[in-house]
Each structure stands twice: as C-alpha cells, then as structure tokens.
Design a protein around this nucleic acid. Structure first.
Length: 208
DNA sequence: GACCAGGCACATC
DNA sequence: GATGTGCATGGT
C-alpha cells in the first residue's frame, strides 16, 4: 500500500510547519478541523508575533482565542495550547531539544497527561515535531483500513497503530510519509460520504 | 441548508 | 466500560 501510494502521489512534504513549536501548535489546532482553517489561524499567530514559546506563554488566553478563531473551537483550543505551553515550560524549560532527549514512550505518557492532548495529537507531536518513530492514526487511517477489511470498524487506536508498527521498520521518515500519504488518499478518494473510491491508487489492492 | 473536516474531555447511565 | 454531547469555523 505504501509503495502504491508513494508512486501515485509522490512525497507529501509533511508536516506543513517549520519549527517543532509550530508543528505542535498545528497538531492541536487541527483537532477535528480542516487544515485550511488551521493555516489561517497560524498565519494570524505569526502576524501577531505570537508563534514563539515566550509569546505563547505570555499571551492572555482570551487574546489567544481571538487569534486562532478561524480554526474553530477557539476557546477550547486556546486553553489546550496554554496547557501544552505550561507543560513544555515546567518539564523542559520550553526546549524541544531537551524534550527530544527522552524516550518516546515516556514522552507519550507525559503528553497524554496534558489536558487537551489525546493519542493522535500526542503521536503527531512525537513523530512530526520530535522525529520519533511513532505511527499517527487519524480518522482517514481508520476509514482506509476498515474499508480494506484490515481492521474492524470499531478497532481502537492501539489496534490501528499496531497494524503499521507490527509490519514496518520503526523509522520516523517512513512513518511520516506513510501517514501523510494516507491523509492524501483520504482527502482525494476516501471521503466519509463516498464509500466507493473509483480510480483510487489502492483499487483492487485488497478485498473491500 | 446540510454535511464535512488530520479530536478530546466530560457527564451520564 | 460504553455511549452521548459540547466545542465552532469555513468550504463544498
């Protein structure tokens, strides 16, 4: 599946963010939200000079919510960003470089303990911001795997993740590209409301 | 105007 | 432990 997707779509150049902080902010803002809305919010944050650790720590939650408004759920997400910044401050003095020294499993537990960070957001930060070999599972992953009969519809996050980690070498660049390709596939061919994926690169790949 | 988008926490049973 | 609900914008 990876080979076919890569041949069809080519490298996806993920994550669309420059610094580990920007990637982490994007991971929180994109929860249940279209990326184009997140991109607007991030642009606004940049224009307001508010996309640095120091600025995010200093900014009032109310003002932060106004800045990220296009991303939706802005009051909740402002609070979640503040929770994440507080964690980064207390545990690593705001340094992703320090954070990266710790093993992924320990980091994952810490992140999951932060209010507003669930499995997907934690794994996105681990993989895309910290380059740890952790596979990210999202709504597209679930849909693609279940429509191809590789997992049941009610499979939980860990079960979906295991499909990848049990059968692939644990390499961050591979996990990065594969997840990005699945999202691309989902956006182009595997929509929620369109169960048949005519012309999709995985057509006839597995029984559906 | 309905449906959808790269979730998560919390209440309730 | 399973299920339901609030959170909110912008594109199709």
């Amino acid at each position: 599946m990876y080979e076919r997707l890569y041949r069809a779509f080519g490298p996806q150049g993920w994550w669309p963010g420059r610094t580990p902080l920007e990637i982490s902010v994007g991971a929180i803002l994109t929860q249940n939200t279209n990326w184009s809305n997140v991109a607007r919010a991030i642009r606004t944050l940049k224009e307001a000079r508010c996309l640095s650790f120091a600025a995010l720590r200093a900014v009032q939650e109310r003002r932060l919510a106004r800045l990220i408004r296009p991303a939706g759920y802005f009051n909740m997400k402002a609070r979640r960003l503040k929770h994440f910044i507080r964690y980064l401050d207390r545990c690593y003095a705001g340094s992703f470089r320090r954070m990266r020294r710790r093993p992924p499993q320990a980091l994952r537990e810490e992140l999951l303990a932060v209010n507003g960070i669930g499995p997907e957001t934690a794994d996105s930060i681990l993989l895309y911001a910290l380059k740890k070999p952790v596979f990210v599972v999202d709504a597209y992953t679930r849909r693609v795997l279940s429509r191809h009969g590789l997992v049941g519809e009610d499979a939980d996050y860990g079960r979906l993740q295991a499909v990848f980690t049990d059968h692939l070498p644990a390499r961050a660049p591979l996990f990065n590209e594969f997840h990005a390709l699945i999202v691309r596939l989902g956006k182009d061919y595997c929509k929620k409301s369109r169960p048949l994926c005519r012309g999709c690169p995985l057509e006839n790949e597995t029984k559906v």
